[in-house]
Design a protein around this nucleic acid. Structure first.
Lengths: 233, 233
DNA sequence: TTTGAATAGTGTATATTATACAATAAGAAA
DNA sequence: TTTCTTATTGTATAATATACACTATTCAAA
């Protein structure tokens, strides 16, 4: 157990990373393979890990996200901790934890973060056999997820739904640098679970001083091209 | 170290309990005495404790609050975790922790909760030398507080300021069962840091279907008595 | 080159909600 | 009866949100 002085095996961080493909919200999940009695078992998990001993929680979340996805300088918001005594009781999860950490694992309390990122950012695995993929949010319910990660994703979604009202700026983390009003409206409606009127939405955006029109239109569409806008804080 | 199998000394919960005395917000703090080199040192801390091994975080928060204040059936909302590696580095705090828990203490990540309660609820210490008191929020900055509890209180305050907009119902946890519109307005303005117009506030409250007028007026005031209202969910 | 298909872009009338503002009512105390 | 203190109430105006439908532009196909 050589990691003993490096890692704190009682606390972890998990990152719920949301993206938007123009139609729906997606969440970034890591493929996990477990060799269980010589049968290979595959499922998915959130990017996360136990924390280092000398590391703050926010630092741990950033580090873990970079290690597992290559993503750097991502704005992460802590939204909730999960610590039910049963969350690390599944034998498959324990097996995987002890294999990957080389530590004896008891109960782990996890501190969960959300991040919103542009979906076209390169997700590059740096080291081993981990593989990160975008998954449709509405398929999460039907997938096999490690630990209580399905619950964590749902709570993360709730969190951004409430907090984008307070922080509308976060929306733009999910859009390309240049975007159309249609894209913005589609995202807005997806997050807020509304269907807003096209004209009224244009009026609303017109008052957002941080959305500025560019002298460009989109290209390669088989119809009238829409004007492009950018976000300026 | 007989508590070893009972307590998890790596994770704690802390409760930021707010009350309202009609004029300002108050927070419930526990007196702490530390015998440091034969000098008695006094300061204050939030009601909190390390968690039990078989206990969920929410359960731990309820238990701790009951143990330290006698309060039961309090609605607690988890709002944030604090886990900087330095938060349990103050020798005085370590001394106190090891004395009270009889455990070797390293780093502790704490999960913080807020609660809002009626200030006239009886706070009764059940066991030992702990003593809980209401403290004015605006004096917290000038007091000596354990660990990072000053920071936790501030974040808790931020949390209720944001979340009472979403959950106006929580406001009524802070008022007596029967209250006047003045009291409600005073609380509302204190929390939201506003000064609202009397007439407009009456109109606003009139549309809150969950605030119902009683057939009673307040008593013992040296002027026209105000009508009493109650909260009905 | 004309036509159709697809999406972009725009204005006005109405309803709802928020704000500003001051005089009267009620009860207690002198 | 007067005075003091707080409670209670309405109206006019401004700001914001909503409902609603036609014309514009571009590409592609006939």
């Amino acid at each position: 157990m050589s990691n003993q002085n490096l890692y704190n095996p009682h606390v972890s961080v998990d990152c719920v990373v949301f993206g938007f493909d123009g139609e729906q919200l997606k969440v970034l999940l890591i493929e996990r393979s477990i060799n269980e009695q010589n049968e290979l078992y595959n499922d998915k998990k959130l990017p996360g890990s136990i924390i280092l001993n000398d590391e703050d929680l926010d630092e741990a979340a950033s580090r873990v996200l970079t290690e597992l996805t290559g993503l750097k300088n991502i704005y992460l918001s802590q939204f909730r901790s999960f610590g039910g005594p049963d969350r690390t009781k599944n034998p498959r999860d324990i097996l995987w934890l002890e294999n990957t950490t080389q530590l004896k694992i008891g109960r782990i309390v996890t501190v969960a973060y959300v991040a919103l990122i542009k979906i076209d950012r390169k997700i590059q695995v740096k080291n081993d056999n981990t593989q990160a993929n975008w998954c449709n949010l509405n398929e999460v319910a039907t997938m096999n997820l490690a630990f209580d990660h399905a619950k964590i994703i749902n709570k993360g979604l709730e969190y951004i739904r409430h907090n984008l009202d307070i922080e509308p700026h976060l929306l733009f983390e999910l859009l390309p640098r240049k975007f159309t009003i249609s894209q913005l409206r589609s995202l807005y409606d997806t997050v807020h679970q509304t269907t807003s009127d096209v004209r009224n939405f244009h009026k609303k955006v017109a008052q957002w001083t941080y959305v500025v029109a560019l002298d460009e239109v989109e290209e390669g569409v088989p119809h009238r091209a829409a004007r492009l806008y950018k976000y300026k804080k």
